[in-house]
Design a binder for these strands. Structure first.
Length: 420
DNA sequence: TCTGGGGTCCTAGGACCC
DNA sequence: TCTGGGGTCCTAGGACCC
């Protein structure tokens, strides 16, 4: 049996925990650059503020209803997420952290089996008491059904917990569920399913498997099987390393000079390299892309990318930065207003498998590794960019705008909440 | 004026091998 | 003139997720 725990309106709820004045009021959280709406409290949803929409398109609604807006404070959300996951882990040693605000639990430990719903309620209360965050829990024999139950728990129950076997008539339940709402069925697939006469989850569950496989992929076949209460998707361990590492951000204002692009690319590579070392990997290639603002159709447009190999697999900032900047010089063209740069570290391998031999300088490698260890621990202890490379720039005027950011209540001493 | 960021998995098709 | 069959590996692009 699987449980899916999902924090309700996670980012908006996090803002509320430390600012109780916001309780009962519409709250939204914005993407980087305060561009798009990426989270909404229930009140904000109720007055019709759309998800993912650019902020300026919702201005009228925001002013009319006095909606409180916040820049995304990912340090705060990440830390709150940790707290929730730790609590969940104490209830379910076997779990999969699926995203910042969601986790699948294995509900098969002996002491749970008696009453799943009660157990869910207990978990929910514990999290609410310990963190202030409300969650919903769906419990079912497969992950896909647990997702569906979670959604039902959120919308249709007061307890916030819903168990698949408490569905009175499963056929009717599935019949009322449009295919688009099934986990893994997106815009394209639901359109195609509709074209072929399949509109709801019941029809999807009962369709011919051969036909399904022929017209779609193995992904859809798995979902169909999961709807039949036969598990196809298992808990995935969270220990596996990422296969690619990406860092990408749009600029706070248009950028034209190579110098500023170099600063941005250096900063993004520095961030990517941190993640690389966290998972104890080395990278063999650096991808760099730059693009103009596609929404400014009246301006000349440009996009290009380049993948440059490093001399040897590395996690050393100067090596990675040099490789990235070499690539950047090749794709940079003057005369454009750039909006965004992206870097990816590719061809990752565990650093334990660092190649030896003629072209790989072992002493050099260990020196660089030691240096990076110190670099990371200083930045961890005193805050990001306490020490940094000169190529990152000093003023960084191109940086993302975050004008409405709440304090980092839980991760920064200076931002600690003061009680009077 | 203002439009996010970071991932995964699957498939088709090309290159190459015997 | 005739031009197989089966396999692996890699990559780009599509679709999806939060």
């Amino acid at each position: 049996m699987y449980g899916l725990v999902d924090c309700n309106n996670f980012y908006a709820s996090c803002e509320r925990v430390f600012n109780p004045k916001l309780v009962g009021k519409p709250v939204i959280v914005l993407s980087n650059n305060d561009g798009c709406i990426i989270a909404r409290s229930q009140e904000a949803k109720d007055i019709g503020i759309p998800m993912g929409a650019p902020l300026f398109k919702a201005r009228d609604l925001i002013e009319k209803h006095n909606v409180k807006s916040f820049s995304a404070n990912f340090q705060l959300y990440g830390d709150m997420s940790h707290r929730v996951m730790n609590i969940l882990n104490s209830y379910a040693p076997q779990m999969e952290i699926y995203s910042i605000d969601e986790a699948f639990l294995s509900m098969d430990s002996a002491n749970i089996i008696k009453d799943y719903s009660d157990y869910g309620v207990k978990i929910r209360q514990d999290i609410l008491r310990s963190t202030g965050l409300p969650v919903s829990i769906g419990i079912a024999p497969t992950k896909s059904l647990a997702k569906i139950c979670n959604h039902h728990a959120k919308k249709k129950t007061t307890s916030g917990v819903f168990y698949w076997n408490d569905v009175k008539d499963k056929n009717i339940f599935l019949k009322n569920l449009p295919v688009k709402e099934i986990w893994g069925v997106g815009y394209r697939t639901s359109y195609k399913l509709n074209e072929l006469g399949i509109y709801n989850a019941l029809q999807f569950r009962d369709c011919n498997e051969m036909w399904l496989r022929k017209n779609f992929s193995v992904t859809e076949l798995r979902i169909c099987t999961e709807l039949k209460e036969i598990p196809c998707l298992e808990l995935e361990s969270n220990h596996e390393s990422k296969k690619n590492i990406m860092s990408s951000r749009s600029f706070g204002r248009p950028v034209e000079t190579l110098k500023e692009l170099e600063e941005a690319v250096s900063v993004y590579i520095t961030r990517g390299a941190e993640k690389l070392r966290e998972q104890k990997s080395l990278a063999s290639y650096v991808y760099v892309s730059i693009k103009t603002n596609k929404f400014r159709e009246e301006l000349p447009q440009y996009f290009n990318y380049i993948i440059t190999p490093t001399n040897s697999p590395t996690a050393y900032n100067p090596d990675l930065i040099k490789t990235g900047l070499d690539g950047l010089k090749q794709i940079y063209r003057p005369g454009f207003k750039y909006k965004k740069a992206t870097i990816m570290l590719l061809g990752l391998m565990p650093d334990a498998e660092a190649p030896l031999g003629l072209f790989f300088n072992n002493t050099d490698y260990h020196k660089k590794k030691e240096l990076m260890n110190r670099f990371d621990s200083l930045n961890n202890q005193y805050g990001r960019e306490v020490i940094k490379y000169a190529s990152n720039g000093i003023k960084q005027e191109w940086r993302t705008k975050k004008e409405l950011c709440s304090p980092r209540y839980t991760t920064n001493w200076e931002d600690l909440l003061v009680v009077r």
